[in-house]
Amino acid sequence: MRRFVKRLYLALILLFLYAPIFVLMVYSFNVSKSRGNWGGFTFGWYAELFRDRQIMQALWNTIVLAVLSAVIATFLGTASAIGINAMKKLPKRVILGINNLPVLNPDIVTGVSLMILFIFAFNMIGRGGLGFTTILLAHITFNIPYVILSVLPKLKQLDKNMYEAALDLGATPAAAFFKVILPEITPAIVSGMILAFTLSIDDFIISFFTTGAGVSNLSIIIYSMARRGVNPKINALSTLIFAVVMILLYLVNRMDSEKLKH
């Protein structure tokens, strides 16, 4: 009896978590635009989704933004993690404290503060406006702290003698870094990059405040469509995104378990 209650409770919670997503999926195949009744099965909304230039452009923007911001943030973040790791206690604490600001600050505050900065700067130099560049700068800014938080612990764990051992065996500092340190911290760099990529794809609030006329990513498009009410194209989009997420999670899991086998 108790076991049954426990299972029922878990099932109800999972139902609560998944029901809305499944409703979206099911209705993405519904002919009728209104929710209540089932008008028959169709792929029409998907076709319409792919014909929507605006959405496709936003998708492209999202991917370019995520790739660019993740790569740049990974580069800057890894370099600075290496520098921070070499710092003494006090400067290290100060830098990490500032680094944590974008993580702890509400996204909306980060968003408006960057917007103020950009517009302030544009007013000062007398030209320019919010757009792709400003979103990109914003995404890099909120991504770097996560890369640092991912790479720094790994650097701390490294045997301090490892770098010296490489020098000792005749490697120049550059060779020692690329042949010994980099291979050691690569997993942390990769997971930092994936995290940055995901955060960039998922972000709405900061993009919303730092974008300008005509430049949207998927989140911004979804928001503006959702504000106008229910739209079956969003259902189709959700279904596709959910499918992509599931496939990615599956692949990552399989890679992990394969790594464990070896």
Binding site: L14, P20, I21, V23, D202, F204, L218, S219, S238, L249
Partner: peptide, 21 residues
């Protein structure tokens, strides 16, 4: 894993889903 998966969905979409319900 089942509890975490919905978090991978875009936050806006998860909220939007309730609109339709």
């Amino acid at each position: 894993f089942l509890i975490i998966v919905p978090m991978w969905m875009n936050f806006l979409l998860r909220t939007y889903a309730w609109l339709t319900i």
